[in-house]
């Protein structure tokens, strides 16, 4: 549609322009803009963007599984929205990382093997029941909110720009999962028991989120040292859990090293489902 046609069609809306269903695309940063902007990252910066992108991609894939399966239609859409937000972050980070290696976001998402993925093990943990998904989202969205907030100061402009969009979205994810955690924790005996169970199965994977890598030190002010997020993260999640009547479990930490491609048995199944279409029909577009 050219501009004149667009103007004409807008005119025909008349008063509808002022209606509650008015649609405006906004002007947020999109992966397509990153691809054409052409600011090629160094290998180290690309590796860091890959870490952030892989976390988001695997989490988005996990969350999308809820679509059509959530307990209520309203929550179905909420989880779908969150999955799409997170997928958007993944697309931006992977597009940026790919510029260093002449690869597209799709090359990185669909054509890498399990051991090439650098995501944290917390994001590949099974959805379990609704409480497990909400607890995983609480854990990761508080973390991402702190991380992206600090990355607004990154000396890498593209990473800072991606985070500027993402931080507002993960702020809502944090709010959404905290609201549910409090309601389920304070709900019935059954819902509280399920939330305690969710905490117990997920807590061991929180340690990995704060492990510093050599890469972080090499990158200096481009990146954030994960260990520096720990105190604020623990305070924030403890406050939510306290309001929900839940306690941090005493379980130990898992030996998780997702950043170097060591994954639990779950990632292979996630990738099999995520990659099958692109691999079966190479070059297909949809």
């Amino acid at each position: 549609m050219n501009h004149e046609e667009l103007d004409a069609s807008l005119d025909s809306f008349g008063d509808a322009l002022a209606s509650a269903t008015r649609v405006t695309p906004g002007n947020a940063l999109r992966p397509e803009d990153i691809a054409v902007a052409g600011a090629k990252p160094s290998d180290e910066v690309a590796q860091y963007a890959l870490h952030l992108g892989d976390d988001a991609l695997i989490l988005a894939q996990r969350l999308s599984h809820w679509i059509s399966r959530a307990p209520e239609i309203e929550e179905d859409i909420a989880l779908g929205n969150i999955a799409l937000d997170v997928l958007g972050h993944a697309r931006s980070f992977l597009t940026y990382a790919g510029l260093a290696w002449d690869k597209s976001e799709d090359d990185l998402a669909y054509w890498r093997e399990e051991e090439d993925f650098t995501s944290l093990q917390i994001v590949e943990q099974p959805n379990g029941h609704f409480g497990v998904t909400i607890m995983r989202q609480l854990i990761i969205s508080i973390y991402q909110h702190l991380l992206y907030s600090k990355l607004l100061e990154s000396t890498d402009e593209t990473i800072a720009a991606i985070c500027a969009k993402a931080v507002k979205e993960v702020d809502y994810h944090r709010d959404h999962s905290a609201a549910w955690t409090i309601r389920l924790g304070q709900g019935t005996e059954e819902s509280a028991a399920k939330m305690r169970h969710a905490l117990e199965v997920l807590w061991p994977y929180t340690g990995e989120m704060f492990q510093d890598e050599e890469l972080h030190r090499t990158l200096g002010d481009v990146a954030v040292l994960p260990s520096t997020l720990r105190e604020a993260w623990e305070k924030e999640i403890t406050d939510v859990l306290a309001e929900a009547g839940l306690e941090i479990p005493k379980s130990g930490m898992a030996m998780a090293h997702g950043r170097v491609g060591e994954h639990s048995e779950h990632l292979g199944f996630i990738l099999a489902e995520m990659q099958v279409l692109a691999r079966k029909h190479p070059g297909a577009s949809w």
Binding site: R22, V23, N81, H176
Partner: peptide, 13 residues
Amino acid sequence: RNARDLYTRRNEG
């Protein structure tokens, strides 16, 4: 929250 998720996801509000 549900209203936000259901009725403003295309930048309506």
